[in-house]
Structures are given as C-alpha cells and as structure tokens.
Nucleic acid binder design. Structure first.
Length: 354
DNA sequence: GCTGCCGGGGT
DNA sequence: ACCCCGGCAGC
C-alpha cells in the first residue's frame, strides 16, 4: 500500500516547477526523487496531514518546517531567484513532491489574475515578470524585500488530452492532479469553498479571508500581502470587508456575500477596529495593505437615516440624544474593553455616531 | 435608574 | 495626547 502510494507520488506531480522546468536536468530530478522517497519512507501518515490550525497563518506552515524558504515561496519577489526559492520551498512545503514532468500531457500554466488581463504564461517567473512589469510598473530587476510585492496569478492546469472540468480533478486521490499531491488533503478540500479562486475569471477575490496562501492544486493565488499572510482569518479585516455602514440594530453578526458569518464582537484583545459608520476614521490594522485590482468589498452598506435632531432642538445647551445605541449599550459593561475609546472615556461615541 | 457625554482634572 | 470621572440632562 505504502509502496503504491509512494510510487504514485514520486511519479506524479511536477508541482511547481516554473521556469526551471526546462533547465532542471534529469539528474536533479532524480535527486529529488531520492529525497522524496527517503522522506516518504521515513515518514508516517502523520506527516501528511495539514494542521488546520495553521490556516491562521497560511504562509507559514508548521513549526518544524522552520525555513525562510517557506516565506520565499509565497513572498518571493526576486523572480530571478524564484526557481530556487520554489525549488527549495516546495521541497519542504509539500514534503517533497517531485518537480518532475508528468507522464501525461498535463501542463501547468500561470494565468494573470489582474483585471482585464488574460495573460497566460508557462512559467511562474514569467508571469511574475509580466505582473511586475505590466501591472506593477516595475523593472523586472528591481529588488524588493519579501512581502512587498504583489503577484496575483493562478496556476492552472491544462490537460492536453481532455480538459478536465473545473476543479473536479482536485480530489486527493486523483492521479491526474499536478502540484501538491495528496499531501494536504484539508487544503484540497478547502479549495472548492474558496470560491474566489477562479481559473477562468479575469480577476478573483484572491485576498479573501479564506484564501489559503498555501498552494492549492489546480491553481493558487500568490500574493504578498502581509495582511493576507498573517491575518487571523477572522476579525480585524472584517469590519471593512463587511462594510458595516450601520451597526445600529443589526446585531453583532453580519454575513458577507460569501455567506460567511462573522462576528466583529470577538475582536482581538487590542482590537481598536471600528465597525461603525464609514465616515469614521478606520484604524488600519498592522500590515494591512490594499490589493490594487481586486475588490474585496462586499457592498453591504445600508444607509441609515438618523433623525435629524434639528426639529428637536432643546433650548438648553445639550443636543438631544442620538438614537443609535452606543458602545455601552451594544457591548455592555462586561465588555467595556470593546468600547470605542470615546465611550470608555465618557465622551461622545465615535463608533456609533448619530 | 440608565444612558450619553460635557467639562474638567490628572498624568 | 491620553485617560479618568463628576455631574448633568435626556430617556
């Protein structure tokens, strides 16, 4: 059984073998294979599982794999080194899938996901160079540090024999899949529900919360956004994503267009985010960068008609109370640390303005 | 009584 | 600037 699996693994995917494909000599492949075999034979099934808890830090797999090449894999910005980076990173990220050409006529292509760009190139370095030069307006040789460059492209698999439909070939057991072999079953399972990954779409919602930076099988979005790589998947981005134009009376749970229920009532400890009206100054979470061409917004803005207090102008000095529930009411005394600072200081609420 | 927040004080 | 709170007015 194990031998069968090993055999199928070692002969299957070429995974990410972008520009190096034509240049990697057979000897190198053989070396890979040996490494692979050794790795696989020495590993138990436990090594094959992908800890779901790591999804919160998608670009950094499990601790034992402490290697910067991991980072390079996702954030590599020096495309001249990408071959080495990927070579190295795939080595440990996928527990050494073989970067070897498949026997069948599957071919991995790289499709640019920028808006209105259908560019498809055969190498990742090529697509990165394309993105860099065409979309980012950079010279291909400019050196950017890790995590500062944006690449949005998908890795698509072209079957020369018969074009498989959609993601149907993503099943872990499918022998026709390229890229990460059933090493990450959970990832593969995740693929369908990260619907933002579209092979055919001109753009995708790549930096979605669900985006798993780890490569999926048929295609994966490769980005460098710090927030994507480090966002704890849930809260900090949520207020913005959800576009909570009105939190008054809507309750803590909001549903995105993806059908994802999110709660901005469970922010991190130091949460200073403001799920309040759009005119409020939104504190930018650390590392948050905006993706240029891909909109992550879901227009859930509800215009809230506050009654203008003009008709009710009190003769006194105080303006009449707003109708909006303030932090005190919304969160309650027990969650005082979730109040906006103004409320905490007994000032006019900044989050739920009138 | 609860709530929102002004005004003022402390650091 | 940040933080706290007494006290007042609206509800």
């Amino acid at each position: 059984m194990a031998a069968t699996v090993l055999t199928s693994l070692s002969t299957s995917p070429m995974v990410l073998q972008p520009s190096s494909a034509p240049t990697v000599p057979e000897a190198a492949n053989r070396g890979w294979k040996e490494v692979l075999s050794a790795s696989y034979s020495s590993s138990t099934s436990g090594n094959w599982s992908w800890d779901a808890s790591d999804q919160s830090v998608p670009s950094t797999p499990s601790p034992p794999l402490s290697n910067d090449s991991n980072k390079n894999f996702l954030l590599s910005s020096n495309n001249d080194d990408i071959s080495d980076d990927i070579h190295e990173s795939t080595h440990f990220m996928f527990e050494d899938p073989i970067p070897r050409k498949r026997k069948n006529s599957m071919k991995v292509m790289f499709k640019c996901l920028w808006k209105n760009c259908e560019k498809v190139l055969s190498t990742s370095s090529g697509i990165q160079r394309h993105i860099r030069t065409m979309h980012l307006g950079r010279n291909s040789d400019s050196d950017y540090s890790d995590g500062e460059e944006d690449f949005y492209y998908s890795e698509i698999e072209v079957n020369m024999d018969s074009l498989t439909e959609g993601l149907s070939s993503l099943t872990p057991t499918s022998p026709t899949t390229t890229a990460p072999p059933p090493v990450f079953p959970s990832l593969l399972v995740d693929v369908p529900h990260s619907e933002h990954i579209e092979v055919t779409g001109p753009h995708s919602h790549a930096p979605s919360l669900l985006s798993q930076s780890a490569p999926s099988t048929l295609c994966h979005i490769r980005t460098d956004h710090a927030y994507q790589a480090t966002a704890p998947v849930t809260v900090p981005v949520v207020p913005e994503l959800v576009g909570v134009g009105n939190t008054n009376g809507t309750g803590p749970l909001t549903e995105t267009s993806n059908g994802i229920s999110v709660s901005w009532q469970s922010p991190p400890v130091n949460f200073k985010g403001v799920p309040g009206p759009v005119n409020h100054v939104r504190p930018v979470s650390t590392g948050e960068k905006r993706q240029p061409a891909i909109s992550t917004h879901t227009a859930v803005t509800k215009s809230h008609a506050f009654v203008t207090p003009a008709t009710k102008a009190t003769p006194g000095t105080r303006k009449p109370r707003g109708e909006a529930k303030k932090c005190r009411k919304v969160y309650g005394m027990e969650k005082k640390d979730m109040w906006c600072t103004a409320c905490r200081w007994k000032k006019a609420c900044q989050r739920f303005t009138d």
